[in-house]
Design a binder for these strands. Structure first.
Lengths: 231, 231
DNA sequence: ATTCGCATCGTACAGTGTACGAGTCAATTG
DNA sequence: CAATTGACTCGTACACTGTACGATGCGAAT
């Protein structure tokens, strides 16, 4: 009886090491592993977006049969979970910074977070429905730790963490969303001028048109951090 | 040649008014309109979640053929757009409040926003991919207007709006997400204690376990508003 | 030589969104 | 009154999806 690994980590197949072809079947190059599957899924998502990822297409890119994937992965949802978490890996910069640099560290991590997700716009729309992978948890842990080290009292910690997390998530999702829907700037522009009558303040502030997303993110973050550190 | 309305608003069918049955076909009750479709879609989403909504099931609930829906609606995506916006309608409380109550008004609208989305948890996961419907824009407009009336300078307006928006979106998505994934508390609990080794600070703060979501939301909002008003 | 467990994959099935075109029926026109 | 139009409904069909099931191959252990 065969038992699938599926979600037990730490399990690499030990196959033939050197012998690259058996008989005459020079099966391109592929041993087909979880890592390869996830990496290819990210590629495919980058290239074709969320609807572009189907098990058959993914398998084709791996030069494998569609059902072969199911040995390594429980179902399609799991592929999404893994792809999302993979994209959110974070290596903290080397620890030579002074302990009062906590704010710089935080901003660095949070801006990197946002940047990572914007580099893979599908990740933003995926986030709401996915489980917390190790990389996401790692970022949360780093966040808690840094805030705690910065002197935030334990009873205020959760508010601080969630406020920052919420802000990053919201900003990223919004931004990623606007990027795509403005593929057709022309249509958007026209829609906006038509809307200016019903929504005058939005129209005046040009909120939807030429927001400086990066600057807005940075400033909003400052507002939050100011508020948190004076508490 | 027939021309579909599909996305031209202001178009109600004028049919037989009083005569409820023609001949002997007492066709239950259904004239099948955009409004009825959207309302039923929301019902279905509430009952079965995002994957539960299929065109065939929706049609069945309306006692109509599946393809009949496509006269009123361009495609399934549009159904999602409309359902989402429908759920986000907001009636501002009567305008008897003093002008310095802007902060109370803001908090009311934002908490109502979050509450509306949590009442229909699918809406949170839908938000990232959807267009801005009139109700969403209405809320944005109200937000701008109130902040502007509160004396926020025009050049700070966008930062303020987006910060609040981001916060609400992020908080709601996170919350809705956790609700679902904790259907099986037992599993979550066990996972958490196992994780406590790798993520000590998260474990200590019990961040994922017993957060007071409503309180955290309210406090985070205060932090933001404090930060914004002292600028 | 036989067994066993890992790994791959072909076939099949139920279900999806929707294109197409035929159908119904009230209102309008000649 | 007959004919035409146009709003609306819906049955059938097609390409495509995720994945259950079982057959197959293969290296290592017995």
């Amino acid at each position: 009886m065969a038992v699938k690994p599926s979600s037990e980590r730490s399990k690499q197949p030990r196959r033939k090491k050197a012998p690259l072809q058996s008989k005459h079947e020079l099966r391109s190059d592929a041993p087909l592993s979880l890592d390869r599957i996830v990496a290819t899924a990210v590629e495919l998502l980058d290239a074709e977006g969320i609807e572009g990822l189907t098990m058959r297409r993914l398998a084709a890119r791996l030069e494998a049969g569609a059902m072969s994937l199911y040995w390594h992965v429980g179902n399609k949802e799991e592929v999404f979970d893994l792809a999302l978490d993979q994209v959110l890996e974070y290596r903290r910069p080397l620890q030579n910074s002074a302990p009062e640099d906590w704010r710089k560290e935080l901003v660095h991590m949070l801006e990197d977070w946002r940047a990572s997700m914007l580099r893979h716009p599908w990740s933003a729309s995926l986030l709401p429905r996915r489980a917390l992978g190790p990389n996401i948890l790692g970022r949360l842990e780093l966040l808690s730790e840094t805030l705690s080290r910065a002197g935030v009292a334990d009873e205020d910690l959760n508010v601080a963490i969630w406020s920052l997390w919420n802000f990053v998530i919201g900003a990223t999702i919004t931004r990623a969303n606007f990027d795509r829907s403005d593929e057709d700037r022309a249509a958007a522009q026209q829609r906006l001028t038509h809307l200016a009558e019903s929504y005058p303040t939005i129209g005046r502030s040009r909120l939807l048109l030429d927001s400086d997303w990066d600057g807005t993110f940075r400033k909003g973050l400052d507002v939050l951090l100011d508020g948190l550190s004076t508490r």
